[in-house]
Amino acid sequence: MPEWLKSFPTLGEEFLRSVRRVFDEGYRSFSREYGEAVEAIFDPLLYLLVWFERLLLATPWWLVVAAVCALCYAATRSKKLVAWTLATLLVVGLLGMWEDTMRTLAIISISTLITVVLGVPLGIAMSRSDRLQAIFTPVLDVMQTMPIFVYLIPVVMLFGLGKIPGVIAVVIYAIPPVIRLTNLGIRLVAEEVLEASDAFGASGRDKLIQVQLPLALPNIMAGINQTIMMALSMVVIASMIGVRGLGQPVLEAVTNQYFAMGILNGAAVVALAILFDRITQAYGRRLRAIR
């Protein structure tokens, strides 16, 4: 049997190594050249992030608790959920994780804000053009299935360690559900309702704002809910590139085999996730109930 039938013929070590080198060199020189310029673009984001984190940390804890509970009540009108929110925050605080929780809350809130600001318009664009949908769908698939560490590499090469690469990684990982469900929600709006708005001479803009977006809102909320969950699951990985918060103690616990520390901080992430999930879902249900 010839050699190439026994083991898979490759293009050759030498050749592959040179290809990799070309890519790495190319990207490295790009980041050397433009790294600072790109970083400058993200400076406003960094300010926002730092400002929000400091705000949460500098505000007295009871004020933050009251504000979160008030937000929860405004969104859900459920006293039970408010009670749970209060209990969770108090327990997390009592167990000494208040500051880390606030840091995580800050980065999750800002990341969610960015995914919504970017994701909803992208989803709208995708819903209006079948071609755009055909292009976006595989890209979103890649974003969701590519191992996270892989796209951490270029982000870290460009930005170094810190908050900004953390937020970017979280956004890339967490944005697909918002885009997908905004697209789906708009496409699911009943044909007859759209025909009625056409029959009354509504413009494309009126149709979008008055009919399509409100009717797609429960789906968009479901997308935001999933996005928040995915963002939270990125907390530990983001801590590997220097994002402070609940992820860092978990990472420390893993490397030092501190079992209790790992469990506690992990539980705090879970508690935050459950809170966000229940609040956004209850809000989504309320939107749906209005019909």
């Binding site: 007859e192 025909e195 008055q210």
Partner: peptide
Amino acid sequence: SMVFQRFALFPHKTVRANVGFGLDV
């Protein structure tokens, strides 16, 4: 203007907002 077989009302709008839709646009 037009009236539809299966009503085609806007489910997320009140009766008042539905009736006012044509005037809104």
